[in-house]
Design a binder for these strands. Sequence first.
DNA 1: CGTCGAAGTCAACAGATGTTGGCCAACGAT
DNA 2: ATCGTTGGCCAACATCTGTTGACTTCGACG
Lengths: 184, 184
Amino acid sequence: MRRTSAETKSIILAAARERFAADGYERATIRSIAADAKIDPAMVMRYYGSKEKLFAAAAEFDLRFDALAGVAPEQLGAAFVRHFLRQWEAGESLQVLLRTGITNDGAAERMREIFAGQLAPRIAALTGDPASAPVRAAMVSAQMLGIGLARYILLFPPVVAMSEDDLVSWLGPTIQRYLTADRP
Amino acid sequence: MRRTSAETKSIILAAARERFAADGYERATIRSIAADAKIDPAMVMRYYGSKEKLFAAAAEFDLRFDALAGVAPEQLGAAFVRHFLRQWEAGESLQVLLRTGITNDGAAERMREIFAGQLAPRIAALTGDPASAPVRAAMVSAQMLGIGLARYILLFPPVVAMSEDDLVSWLGPTIQRYLTADRP
DNA sequence: CGTCGAAGTCAACAGATGTTGGCCAACGAT
DNA sequence: ATCGTTGGCCAACATCTGTTGACTTCGACG
């Protein structure tokens, strides 16, 4: 018994996150994950039961919008952009979700939950307009997912080259408008 | 000899486009494409050589921005949005690219070519500012890809529910700003 | 020391996948 | 009618996939 079971379990999870983020659901094989973790593929099954369940564990995610409480209303756009960019770079979780959500229905469902369930209520609270919050949340999500796609997945050179401040300058007013402008 | 070779070739290509658009690169198997086309899998190989080459043929695409020539400068934003939405709905090509571009490096490369190679020159011509065109094109791409992702792939309910006019109202000013506003 | 349980390994399975080569069957020209 | 060409199909291949079960190692506790 070299390691405790909890240790190996988290080693596997870390390797899984990396592989899912880099390769997507289908190409991230259990064997490759196990190889990264320097562990027998059978252990992955022992601890997580199946590839689906391992993925579910790897895709746990919290956007942590509570960090945005107390921001002045006219600076919400810029604050949102900065927060999202940091979330993209903090861990592989968002990239896992985006890479897999496109071929895996379960991941797409989770994505809908996260953006509708975590973002919309926050927007409702911050703007005081619950009725339009779902649409605003969807527009903000679409813009920020598009940027994440261009910058971290498709690697569009101009977007990769931009600094965080550049991106905030471009995107801040857009998000601000989606959050607070009158409904068209 | 029931059909001519060109006929079956295009039948295969149509089935391939649908499968790639619906399932992504890995899950769209040659066998399933052949089954859709009611044809033996071996025929796919005979006509296209390999799965990679079949995919390359299925991912041919032209954004046809020439249709935007002659639009008044202050209406470019709305015109772009409408044009993109029609392109998303016209055929499966954009969905093929997005679904596969996320796991397949070749598709990602093609996506970069299309958006940098077709969109940026058009923007340079329409705005008369070649220097900032690549960045503007990238921002427009990010926003429109984000909307396509939300509406056609991830199926965010509020985005799915919106009409084309609703989307133009929300997105038009954003695109207009990305196209013509001073560089931040 | 001996035993028991948990951590780790090995080999194999059944199924699916891309790909190949050989074999039919139908058509047009001779 | 015959023959060659060409579209179509079948069976098989090697490989890879998720998953399973039996076996081995090793530490803790009696």
